[in-house]
Amino acid sequence: MTLAEGVQLVAFGVLSAMMLGSALGVVLLENIVYSAFLLGGVFISMSGMYILLNAGFVAAAQVLVYVGAVNVLILFGIMLVNKRQAFLPVQRAWVSKTATAMVCAGLFALLTASIINTPWAVSTLTPAGELAIVEIGKHFFSDYLLPFELASVLLLIALIGAIVLARRELIPDVAPGEPESEALQLPERPRELVSSLPASLGDLIDS
């Protein structure tokens, strides 16, 4: 990255403010659709962070996979389970919320202390920059070949597993006494026959 130090710092500040604000919105907002769109904001600002960290390939992968696939998948999930119900109030919900907030604040304090107190062995070499993608490709096909292939098998397993889990196996209920219509017994709903086309269109085909 050949940006000036000040530009990098300002970009980092803007991106981190966007990211933390959107993340708080994801967690705290009542409407879940707003949360899903703010999650997209988190992913996009995260990709900007990756560009600041000299990782263009992973930034592109982040936009493609997270914003393009995971966020859209979550939006589809929200639409599929779109039940506008008010949750039953739980007794003393504020106790658990306060306790969780305190635990999270403590965890953050602990992480902050360990981050600041650790003497990081920061390397002085120049980053790979644009050549990082070549390095990633070399890693994938030499020393990380087995995890790379296992990831593809894992994705196949997840694909089939998601289909098996989400497939609807029930056929629609039939009122008692009413004979089951023939359409429900067939594996596929019968399509409209060609002969039911409008008469003029049928004449056109015949001629």
């Binding site: 995971v70 979550i74 990831a151 997840a158 694909l159």
Partner: peptide, 12 residues
């Protein structure tokens, strides 16, 4: 990233 994508699909 790839494992997170698989996890999101199976979770949903």
């Amino acid at each position: 990233i790839s494992i997170a994508a698989a996890e999101a699909a199976v979770g949903l």
